[in-house]
Amino acid sequence: MDNGALSYRRFLDGDESAFDFIIKEYFDNLIFFINRYVHDLHISEDIAIDVFADLAAHKSRYNFRVTLKTYLFVLAKSRAINYAKRQNKRRAVEQYYTENENSEYESLESLVLRDELKLTVNKAVDNLPEDMKVAIHLIYFEDLTYEEAAAVMGKNKKQIDNLLYRAKNTLRTMLGKEDLLK
């Protein structure tokens, strides 16, 4: 059982401080992921709060068959897509952020993507088609396995593999570098 699932088990047994660990461990990453769909940090934070509220309220829904991280990302993706559909937002990142929001995004970005390479790639990733963008994000930024990424995206392992292959080719073209993502 992963650390997140263990903490959640402790929370279910009555240890409310265990939920603090879960929030600290996954909250920022979740906002970053949701932002791939929503392109609004404050909305992304709001959706992330809803996801965690759902986790705290519906105690029997998580069945421990997947990692807690995977479960949270599945919930987040579903809510983010629903929000994006309702709002029908299709803004380019560079058109949206104000100066203040830009700095907030950058601090979140550096918090989540502690790797220089990932920071370099991140800006290019946002220009990829949605499925490719999400696949790259889950595998390379969130370190999920192919199976876990497939569970989040509602696809099979083969489809994830294909998406990653195409995404890497596109990124190589965009960034002009070889072996950018191994």
Partner: peptide, 23 residues
Amino acid sequence: MRSFEERKTEIFRRSEKIISQNR
């Protein structure tokens, strides 16, 4: 963006609301 404590408070406030609505 909210601080950790603000997030935690908001999370539990919304979860209580969900539980109450379900009840």
